[in-house]
């Protein structure tokens, strides 16, 4: 466990030691701030807005941002070690392959959670100036964290299979995006295939959270996606040795 911690801590230091963290944080706050404001400020279309974060959680921009952000955070984690050759010292240290993957993954998750924590001042303002329903806010954040966790796991896998960070990021964005929207195609196929496609896609599972519903099924879905991709990343790292 101490090695997982050591690996994670090193990566967290890198995240916060480089300007990237602050640039990404700033962009994220600008984008989500606009989304939040548009949802709660009265306008012609929406003269009596609700004191809620629904707009923030449901906006495709928020989701799009997470789809872009997750692989950007994970792309260097293993790819860079392969490119720089530092992986040789990492893999010859008495560290298990899963400890490397899990440690690095936890660092990226911590960064994502920290980023989401920055937006907590939106609900804070709502609580100060109005009386929002805390339920959907909590479930909305839970959904975002779970979706982010699964996206980061996919990014971990793509970072492990290539030493090119750009390739890792692009393939990651593609995979996460495809997984997110695949259930849109469920009408195109029939029967079991349709049900399957519906269940595999992330969108349907995510949507309920933003509406204030915490369904175990959805929690299990995101945790499963995370576990499967982390497992694949560990296997990919093991396979590296045999190449």
């Amino acid at each position: 466990m101490r090695t997982v911690q050591a690996v994670a801590w090193k990566e967290i230091q890198v995240y916060f030691g480089t300007p990237i963290a602050y640039i990404v944080g700033m962009i994220f706050l600008v984008v989500t701030g606009i989304i939040f404001a548009s949802g709660v400020v009265p306008s012609e279309n929406n003269p009596f807005p609700e004191a809620a974060l629904t707009a923030f959680f449901q906006s495709r921009w928020t989701i799009f941002f997470v789809i872009l952000l997750a692989p950007t955070l994970t792309m260097r984690l293993i790819s860079e070690e392969q490119k720089m050759g530092t992986i040789e010292l990492l893999l010859t240290s008495p560290v298990r392959d899963w400890e490397i993957i899990v440690g690095k993954y936890l660092a990226s998750l911590a960064f994502l959670v920290a980023l989401l924590a920055l937006t907590l001042y939106y609900p804070l303002m709502l609580f100060i100036f109005a009386e929002p329903d805390p339920g959907p806010i909590f479930s909305g954040y839970l959904g975002l964290v779970l979706f982010g966790a699964s996206a980061l796991a996919i990014g971990m896998l793509t970072s492990t299979i290539t030493s090119n960070q750009i390739v890792a990021a692009i393939v990651g964005i593609g995979l996460i995006g495809a997984l997110f929207v695949v259930d849109f195609s469920s009408d195109l196929v029939e029967g079991v295939a349709s049900v399957l496609v519906n269940e595999i896609g992330s969108y349907a599972h995510y949507e309920d959270f933003s509406r204030g519903v915490i369904d175990t099924k959805h929690v299990v879905y995101f945790l499963s996606v995370t576990a499967v991709f982390l497992f694949l990343a560990i296997r990919a790292l093991e396979f590296r040795r045999w190449r």
Partner: peptide, 12 residues
């Protein structure tokens, strides 16, 4: 182990 290219984490 000291690998040939001395791979180190240059940002640390």
């Amino acid at each position: 182990y000291l690998p040939e290219t001395v791979p180190l984490h240059t940002e640390m």
